[in-house]
């Protein structure tokens, strides 16, 4: 009886969460035909993109360098100049750039969005917005989501370049590769579709990160602890969704 009751509770919570999320998504979509707050979009682009650049750049640079070392030591060292450069380029643009960049941004941005909107919820600022005839979905949620979708691909494009340069730096400084040859190999091996697939992924990750931040913040309750839970849930859910959706998108883009 106890087991059945617990299963029932889990199903109820799942259905409740699904319903709540569907409603949130529907209201957000409806905000698309409402008023657009361009100033808020611009502020969020700065926050998500510009201020995330250092941390994403560092992550990407060291990932590119570590990848070059791994391929060199683990692979065929006789033909390594072409192999290292090509695998670093492919690995960074198709997978590591968007996924690691996405997870780093999720840790920074999704948490910040959930904390900000969550605090606004528990201090009645969202109610105050409504009382001043302002739709919080139009004013708070939509600008963040649009900014995430626009900014992540730009951020990841820079991350791709820096990641490749990280590989180049390690290859030329530690492995005694010829820098020009390394770059020529990278250029000849890399195709536009490798870059665009990564940028499409990044755009989708931008949607996930901001959506999870806004959703968890919007429904937070219970004061400081509630805001803390919302922040944790936003980071955990966006990280898991990034990894899961990355697998699905990789299958769609490359398995056929």
């Amino acid at each position: 009886m106890n087991i059945l009751s617990n299963i029932g509770k889990v199903i109820t919570v799942f259905l409740e969460e699904t319903g709540k999320f569907s409603f949130f998504l529907m209201r957000t979509l409806r905000a698309l035909i409402g008023r657009w707050y361009f100033k808020n979009i611009f502020q969020q682009i700065l926050f998500i993109g510009y201020y995330s650049l250092p941390v994403v750049a560092l992550t990407s640079f060291f990932t590119g360098g570590a990848l070059a070392l791994q391929i060199y030591y683990g692979g065929n060292q006789f033909n390594s100049e072409s192999i290292v450069s090509s695998i670093v380029a492919l690995g960074i643009t198709r997978e590591l750039g968007p996924v690691l960049g996405g997870i780093v941004v999720a840790g920074r941005v999704s948490a910040a969005i959930a904390a900000e909107i969550g605090t606004m919820r528990v201090t009645e600022q969202i109610d105050a917005l409504k009382s001043l005839s302002t739709d919080p979905y139009e004013y708070l949620v939509l600008p963040r989501i649009i900014s995430g979708i626009i900014t992540l691909p730009l951020l990841i494009f820079f991350a791709d370049i820096i990641g490749i340069m990280g590989g180049w730096f390690i290859a030329t400084q530690s492995l005694d590769f010829n820098g020009d040859v390394y770059l020529q190999n990278t250029e000849s091996f890399l195709e536009i579709s490798d870059i665009t697939s990564g940028l499409i992924k990044a755009s989708f990750f931008g949607l996930i990160i901001t959506l999870m931040g806004c959703y968890n913040g919007f429904y937070s309750n219970g004061g400081a602890q509630g805001v803390g839970n919302a922040t944790t849930n936003a980071v955990v859910s966006s990280s898991i969704l990034i990894l899961a959706s990355n697998y699905i998108m990789t299958t769609l883009f490359f398995a056929t």
Binding site: T123, E124, D127
Partner: peptide, 27 residues
């Protein structure tokens, strides 16, 4: 037109005082 004074004031903490007061007009 309805105005509301909330229990905890509910001022927008990312905006300056004058921006809070003129929020409705600026919109």
């Amino acid at each position: 037109k309805i105005g509301m004074l909330f229990q905890g004031s509910a001022l927008f903490d990312s905006l300056k005082i004058w921006q809070n007061v003129s929020f409705y007009d600026s919109r």
